[in-house]
Simulated scan of single mutants.
Amino acid sequence: MPEIAIAERAGVGADGHPRPTEDHVVVLGNAVLVLDGATSSDPSQPPGGWYAERLARRLADDLRAAPGADLTDVLTSAIAAVTADNGLRPQQSPSSTVAAVRWLGDRVDALVLADSPVVGFGAFGVDVVSDDRLARLRRRGMLQTGADVRRRRNAHDGFWVAEAVPGAAAHAVRRSWRRADVHAVLLASDGVSIGVDQYALFDWREVLATARADGPDAVLAAVRAAEKQDPDGERWPRPKRHDDQALVLVDFTSGGIQGLP
């Protein structure tokens, strides 16, 4: 069993007021999941955290039942089950990112759907498993309104995310590494990866070094401190002053679990 260290912090809503985190972290016997529920602008919809919690629970149940199953197949069936159980409809439902890491006897598998990356470290160097389709659309100014997001969600000219379309799972970014080559893996929600991708506070090697030396919460604190210096988003435009944060370090050089409630 690798050593697993976890840090989470709630952000604020679109109105700037505190509210419960919509990120969910699940640790299983041979896997870790990080899901980031997307904040909806439609008050008639359940929140993204509601959806992420249900999808995380279904994924966990399915992976406990079949620890070696294909990750895309597991995600496909989990989305289908949550959709059916709750009567969800495409383009009119809450959604969530999915980041998964699963270790077996001979390999470590990673899956990423939407913008919660997985980063592997080992004999192969640093391998960032990321889905940049959302980021590309934002840079091109194609997600200006809620209608834009709905139109391009789970569409071939848009981005793919866990929602009410089980086929979205087939568009996840996948990676497998030889287990003997893997030293550590990070899973992050975008409230953490923004510190690398937009704020340039550190690179992923530095994130790993900080998480190992001071714990993953030190990384979250550095991102939050930078945001407090830019409260109105003038330097780093963003929809919320502080997003939810989740960071998990899976360290294959030792054993144990830290940071679990």
Score class of each variant (00 low, 15 high):
142 M>L: 15
128 V>L: 15
153 R>P: 06
124 F>A: 03
160 W>M: 02
124 F>N: 06
163 E>M: 11
168 A>C: 03
164 A>W: 10
169 A>K: 06
126 V>M: 13
132 D>P: 09
138 R>G: 04
120 G>N: 03
152 R>A: 01
122 G>K: 09
171 H>S: 04
129 V>G: 01
152 R>M: 04
154 N>A: 11
174 R>L: 15
124 F>W: 00
130 S>Y: 11
150 R>K: 03
129 V>Q: 02
174 R>G: 01
159 F>Y: 12
132 D>A: 12
121 F>E: 02
124 F>T: 01
169 A>V: 12
170 A>M: 14
155 A>Y: 00
145 T>N: 07
150 R>I: 04
154 N>P: 10
131 D>Q: 04
151 R>Y: 11
168 A>Q: 00
138 R>A: 11
150 R>D: 04
156 H>Y: 11
174 R>K: 06
128 V>Q: 14
130 S>R: 14
142 M>Y: 05
168 A>G: 04
158 G>N: 10
130 S>V: 15
154 N>T: 12
134 L>C: 02
159 F>E: 00
156 H>K: 09
165 V>D: 13
137 L>Y: 06
141 G>H: 08
137 L>G: 07
132 D>K: 07
154 N>D: 12
138 R>K: 12
141 G>N: 00
163 E>D: 15
127 D>L: 04
172 A>L: 05
145 T>Q: 08
126 V>C: 15
157 D>Y: 09
175 R>T: 09
170 A>W: 11
135 A>G: 05
157 D>P: 05
143 L>K: 13
170 A>C: 14
120 G>D: 00
141 G>I: 08
150 R>L: 01
147 A>S: 13
138 R>D: 10
152 R>V: 03
165 V>F: 06
159 F>R: 03
140 R>T: 09
166 P>D: 04
144 Q>M: 05
153 R>A: 14
